[in-house]
Design a protein around this nucleic acid. Structure first.
Length: 676
RNA sequence: GCUGGCGUAGCUCAAUCGGUAGAGCAGCUGACUUGUAAUCAGCAGGUUGGAGGUUCGAGUCCCCUCGCCAGCUCCA
């Protein structure tokens, strides 16, 4: 007999060799039916017997069929547990792989992990292609396999060559799958045991766990297909990545698909065009054209940031967009950032040859377009002597930078080739680092809260392969950031090797409507650049010292941040951000004069108001205002002209009724102010 | 940059086997004089992304190129 502990602290006694499924049945038939998998924590005392759960002392999710041991702490997982959904989706990946192999016998499987909203499987197709057109056939095949309710069986491979399951596994996709062979080699290299999972005729290398049988996998859907590379290496074999998702119930699946559909409607590229905020041209790839309404939003973002910066003692600069190439050698950008930079090229008319144009003329001082603002700020710092009394010195700039991007990575306003950074550089003494970074973390949190952004992820990125500065400097810088993060008490993830070439950074990532994560804010600590540019300050000791530099941007890119806000609000901006705040609508042509006077009154009150004088029905104009997501419509007709009022309709609250312009302005006063 | 997909009117989309490029919305003009999410009628709108090729004939087939979309890689 063995005794196990349940999550509520009670214990159960089971016959020797009993599984988690037996435990569930022992607790009750309802649980037995609802059980998906089990979470087992095994005390780290004995080392004999069956190997898994894999790491002793740590809780691991395992198959229901796995035998338990005395002393195990066991939780039966049902569809209500988050881990259960991952188990389901991973099982669905096996199901999909099975179906694909049936329809594409030449396919070779590689890896098939669970991702945030589902799963994918990377598949090598030596010839032919797999497109969404194949989805119905694959899904139908998956449905058939699910209908058979094949149990998922776990097989531990002891003697590879003698093992029947392993032989079947090797045969499953032709017997010469070099990808799986590579994985097997790695697992054995680590001294771990191989495990296989089988359902029906299908066997796959897998750590598990899985749902009890394929009957659980009835609510699956393939979502997309794209390219990928084996080991994410473009030099290696190209793979087809087939994405899918799975849920425990039809309702959950439908709800998920509906949410994706909703998210697509928030796409800033679509809304940007429909609300006339900006557009792109084929002749200017990745360079947005902001229209009047988009420009209002853009300017509001910049003005708000200026106010916040001013309050914190920043001094705003304006530095050149083009600087000499040699400067970028000094800064290290030429060495480390060349591929992302635009360089100027001269052309000259050849007077001897009837005005023919010579390309790429060499220049005495070749020029480059700035991809970052830091060198300019270093030059301003260096333009006069600085004292320790000046520090910390905070220079800001709404700097327009240009960066060449590989084709294929551009993405609306999120990834452009020219953008405006709400950039700033703090110059300070080493002792001031902690204080400056603490201030910045607080500052950024305040800004994101102002825009009602709550899903902000923080990362600490460390030294990349291409970088400048000594190991000692990097260690010091990384340690400084880490302690500042600990000090502030915010949660963060480590992102090794993703720092800037001149220093480690704290990044703030925000998600778009489709949950793709984009870096916005960044705080970068730099001990190298001030030295390269020969910066110094006179300390209290009368000696020269090199200052430390902190690069920082809160929006990151005003363009990207604007895109994030469009998706976050689905373009239903709060009043203070709305490009057009009120639309005045005369009921008929007879009321044009009065509509004009109301419009002027609202403009005088510095409201962003427009008036629709077209000869359309009121209903039509209301519809237009609504589609343009304008917060207020002010309808005026005979009654209002008589009484000197306006009839207000709110985008969010419907009709508010008749009121004077003064009452209306009073009513929206608070909404209009950004709370800065 | 890589893999796959897609480019037809301002927008959303049609066009059968390679055989006269079309509709709705938007735009313009006119009529209606309108009371809270689409009034009616008419007009105009195109080098089918660009450049080559095959063909009697190309939106459609082939090659090149540019852009867009999804993902990979990279990044604010």
């Amino acid at each position: 007999m063995l005794e196990v502990t349940l999550p509520d602290g009670s214990s159960r006694t089971l016959p020797e060799g009993a599984s988690a499924a037996d435990l569930a049945a022992e607790i009750g038939p309802g649980l037995a039916k609802a059980a998906v998998a089990a979470r087992v924590r095994r005390p780290a005392r004995d080392t004999e017997g069956t190997a898994a759960p894999d790491s002793d002392g740590e809780a691991a999710v395992v198959d229901l069929s796995r035998p338990l041991r005395g002393g195990d702490e066991v939780a039966i997982l049902t569809r209500r547990d988050a881990e259960a959904l991952d188990v389901l989706r991973h099982s669905a990946a096996h199901l999909m792989a099975d179906a694909i192999l049936r329809l594409f016998p030449q396919a070779q499987l590689t890896i098939g992990p669970v991702v945030e909203d589902g799963f994918y499987y990377d598949i090598h197709l030596p010839e032919g292609a797999l497109t969404p057109d194949d989805f119905p056939a694959i899904e139908a095949e998956m449905g058939r396999i699910a209908g058979r309710a094949h149990p998922f069986e776990r097989c531990e491979v002891r003697e590879r060559d003698a093992d029947e399951a392993f032989a079947r596994y090797r045969a499953i996709d032709g017997g010469h799958n070099r990808f799986k062979a590579e994985l097997v080699g790695e697992i054995e290299g680590r001294g771990e045991g191989l495990t296989l999972y089988r359902h029906g005729d299908f066997v796959d290398l897998c750590r598990g766990p899985h749902v009890p049988h394929t009957g659980w996998l009835k609510h699956t859907r393939l979502t997309s297909v794209s390219g990928a590379y084996w080991r994410a290496d473009a030099e290696r074999e190209r793979l087809v990545r087939v994405y899918g998702t799975a849920f425990f119930s039809k309702a959950d699946l439908e709800e998920h698909l509906r949410r994706i559909e909703e998210a697509r409607k928030r796409d800033h590229r679509v809304l940007g065009e429909r609300l006339d905020l900006f557009h792109f041209e084929e002749d200017a790839p990745g360079f947005p054209f902001f229209h009047p309404r988009g420009n209002v939003l853009f300017t509001l973002l910049i003005d708000s940031m200026r106010r916040l910066l001013g309050r914190r003692g920043y001094h705003e600069l304006r530095t050149p967009v083009i600087l000499s190439e040699s400067l970028w050698h000094t800064s290290g950008h030429y060495e480390n950032y060349l591929e992302n930079m635009f360089f100027t090229k001269l052309k000259l008319r050849d007077e001897g040859d009837s005005g023919a144009v010579r390309d790429n003329v060499d220049e005495q001082r070749p020029l480059a377009v700035k991809p970052m603002n830091c060198p300019g700020h270093l030059l301003v710092y260096r333009s006069r002597a600085r004292s320790h009394n000046d520090l910390p010195l905070r220079f800001s700039e709404m700097g327009l930078v240009h960066r060449r991007e590989l084709s294929g990575v551009r993405h609306g306003l999120f990834r452009v080739q020219a953008f405006t950074q709400d950039d700033a550089h703090h110059f300070c003494t080493p002792e001031q680092i902690g204080g400056e970074i603490g201030l910045l973390i607080e500052f950024f949190r305040e800004v994101y809260a102002l825009f009602e952004l709550d899903d902000v992820r923080v990362e600490l990125s460390t030294r990349p392969e291409k970088s400048i500065g000594s190991d000692a400097i990097w260690e010091r810088a990384e340690a400084s950031l880490e302690s500042a993060l600990e000090e502030s008490g915010i949660e963060y993830q480590l992102n090794p090797g993703d720092g800037a070439f001149y220093g480690p950074k704290i990044d703030f990532h925000i998600r778009d409507a489709l949950k793709r994560s984009w870096q916005c804010g960044t705080i970068q600590l730099d001990f190298s650049m001030p030295e390269r540019f020969g910066l110094h300050y006179i300390g209290a000791d009368g000696q020269r010292h090199t200052p430390v530099m902190i690069h920082r941007a809160c929006y990151g890119s005003v363009e990207r941040f604007m895109g994030i806000l469009i998706e976050h609000f689905a373009a239903r901006f709060p009043l203070w951000l709305a490009p057009v705040q009120v639309l005045v609508i005369p009921v008929s042509a007879k009321h044009v004069e009065y509509a004009r006077s109301v419009h002027e009154k609202l403009l005088d009150a510095e409201l962003r108001a427009e008036v629709n004088l077209k000869d359309d029905r009121v209903g039509y104009k209301i519809r237009e205002a609504s589609l343009q997501k304008i917060p207020y419509a002010a309808v005026v007709g005979g009654r209002e002209a008589e009484a000197g009022t306006l009839n207000v309709r709110s985008r969010d609250a419907g009709e508010l009724g008749e009121m004077t312009a003064r009452d209306f302005l009073e009513r929206i006063a608070e909404e209009r102010s950004p709370g800065l």
